[in-house]
């Protein structure tokens, strides 16, 4: 299968005062295109750091981060912005949508930075929010806000959809809906989209194509799941 993410000898060290904290310790990782990948691990294991490096939100202290054949670890700030705009969709635990913009406008915002975005109406329809397009975020429930965030990410038509605890702030029923949307996004586009989900919730691992366990800044295991369960089959 075609590789989308390659990490070679990647380390990330944070300096806190005079102390150093190694969030990622010399890791190597390869991820395939079109898969749904779940990254599991306890707090402080380095999951989010891994996601941030893949997403171009942060740069490694050493090593190479290669996305779709391009080494982004050597990119400057400007190039990283372009990389994020064209290739990556982010979904956060607390949605991070702009409170002063309507649902539609929150999705429209990507039009200023992406060359070929998916039409806003289509993106909203895919997450079932077309009827709420003129509402402001504070008029929506948590699940609906997360769907706005997914629509915004999807509208960019990204190669990578990076989700940091996307269901963390939602009830189980809403969480299932969100995961279904993520699966749908992964299966769309003839398998060209890759979804990486960072989570504490080990139950989510059952629906993934690949499950990565991270501990103390190291990759503990990479497990392939040839028969991922359907989301409705998982007992939450």
């Amino acid at each position: 299968m075609e590789k989308i993410v390659e990490l070679k000898n990647v380390s990330k060290v944070y300096k806190i005062g005079e102390n150093e904290f190694k969030a990622l310790d010399n890791i190597d990782l390869e991820l395939n295109k079109g898969e749904m990948i779940v990254v599991l691990g306890p707090s402080g294991a380095g999951k989010s750091t891994l996601l941030n490096l893949i997403g171009g939100m942060d740069s490694p202290s050493s090593g190479e981060v290669i996305i779709d054949g391009e080494n982004i670890s050597s990119y400057n700030e400007n190039k990283l912005s372009s990389y994020r705009a064209e290739n990556v969709g982010f979904i956060f635990q607390f949605y991070n949508i702009l409170p002063s913009l309507t649902v539609k406008e929150n999705v429209d915002i990507v039009k200023d930075i992406v060359k070929n975005p998916i039409p806003t109406e289509e993106a909203l329809k895919s997450v079932g929010l077309e009827e709420h397009k003129n509402k402001f975020p504070n008029q929506l429930s948590g699940g609906e806000q997360q769907r706005v965030s997914i629509a915004r990410a999807v509208a960019k038509n990204p190669k990578l959809l990076l989700c940091d605890e996307p269901t963390g702030a939602l009830d189980s029923h809403t969480g299932v809906d969100v995961l279904k949307l993520l699966r749908k996004q992964c299966d769309a586009n003839h398998g060209a989209n890759t979804v990486i989900i960072v989570t504490h919730n080990s139950l989510i691992a059952d629906i993934a194509d690949t499950v990565i366990h991270v501990k103390n800044g190291k990759i503990e295991s990479v497990v392939k799941n040839p028969n991922p369960k359907k989301i409705d089959e998982v007992k939450w």
């Binding site: 997403g55 939100m57 700030e77 400007n78 912005s81 372009s82 990389y83 994020r84 705009a85 064209e86 990556v88 982010f90 991070n96 949508i97 702009l98 409170p99 915002i109 990507v110 200023d112 930075i113 992406v114 915004r152 960019k156």
Partner: peptide, 16 residues
């Protein structure tokens, strides 16, 4: 600041 950070994550350039 956090809204600008969101825009930055989305891929907005500093100039924008």
């Amino acid at each position: 600041e956090y809204q600008f950070a969101t825009l930055k994550v989305l891929g907005y350039k500093n100039k924008q």
